[in-house]
């Protein structure tokens, strides 16, 4: 079966234990206001232009099409860039070919493994499970997920991978809906399943200024962690570079919060509740 992969990072440092490769699958059901991987949102392939090294010759724009006011690059644009800066983002790959590619580095990944990330990897669940089956017994596997998927899919995922990186963003359902586009109900159900499964996992909390880094949200998240018997979390402070990739896609980055604010690391609340954390 084919899946759409938008990036393979061979030496990925912050996506699970040991030296790992990360596979980024295209497509995500969420639209987080702070998303720093916008090329992972849509499920289909799209053309992107790297701004680094652009000489501004305009060849790509001249061969582009206009759709709903957006500039959409064409295959001609790719060909006509003298610096080779345009590319198709999102490659359709057979699961077997992807596994083969990953396993080529097996020797170097022996103390780490492979992490499927996205987008949301469970959005291409059948493809993902085929890949995981193909790697079983050969490499340590992990899934980095927002937890938004059918319970049946998540249960299958629990049986298929060795390790999970589970994002918890906002504790309040309405807030979650406002900033990510979906409610967190099924996410929390799936999170409980993970906590009860006995699987190794780590919780990751993005710290978005004035959105997720508030005392109120932190208290809420900590409560969820405690209810599920979790005593450690990794915090990912918002990075102002997040908007960088939107331009590549010809889109505009419009965060729904003031990105100039300093990120608050809610240390006291974690400490008070006896939950250890690490800032990544």
């Amino acid at each position: 079966m084919q899946g759409c992969v938008f990036s393979i990072e061979e030496f990925s440092v912050y996506d699970g234990p040991g030296i790992r490769s990360s596979i980024f699958l295209k497509g995500c059901p969420l639209r987080c206001s702070w998303c720093h991987n916008p090329e992972g949102q849509r499920s289909t392939a799209e053309i992107v232009r790297s701004p680094n090294g652009c000489i501004g010759c305009g060849n790509c724009i001249n061969s582009a099409e206009k759709k709903n006011g957006e500039t959409v690059f064409t295959l001609e644009s790719i060909k006509n860039c003298p610096k080779g800066l345009l590319r198709v983002c999102g490659e359709w790959m057979e699961s077997g070919a992807l596994c083969e590619k990953i396993l080529k580095n097996r020797k170097l990944l022996k103390n780490g493994g492979v992490t499927f990330s996205g987008g949301e990897p469970l959005m291409q669940s059948s493809f993902l499970f085929e890949c995981l089956a193909g790697l079983k017994g050969q490499l340590h596997t992990a899934i980095q997920t927002c937890g938004f998927c059918g319970e049946d899919v998540f249960e299958k995922a629990l049986l298929s991978a060795d390790f999970f990186l589970f994002d918890l963003k906002l504790a309040d359902g309405a807030q979650h809906k406002r900033y990510t586009g979906v409610s967190n109900e099924v996410i929390l159900t799936n999170f409980s399943k993970l906590a009860q499964s006995g699987k190794d996992f780590v919780v990751r909390i993005p710290l978005i200024p004035t959105v997720t880094d508030t005392a109120e949200n932190t208290e809420g998240i900590v409560k969820i962690l405690k209810e599920n018997g979790v005593s450690y979390a990794e915090l990912l402070p918002y990075n102002k570079m997040a908007g960088g990739k939107y331009k590549m896609l010809g889109r505009e980055y419009r965060p729904d919060f003031d990105e100039g604010m300093t990120v608050n690391i809610p240390k006291e609340i974690f400490d008070k509740n006896g939950i250890a954390f690490k800032v990544l």
Binding site: F11, V13, G18, I19, N111, K278, V279, L280
Partner: peptide, 18 residues
């Protein structure tokens, strides 16, 4: 940014070792 904390440092050290 890869070397921003001890996790990144340790893994980069492992890469050199490899």
């Amino acid at each position: 940014s890869v070397l921003r904390n001890d996790i990144g440092i340790e893994k980069t050290a492992q890469l050199v070792k490899l």
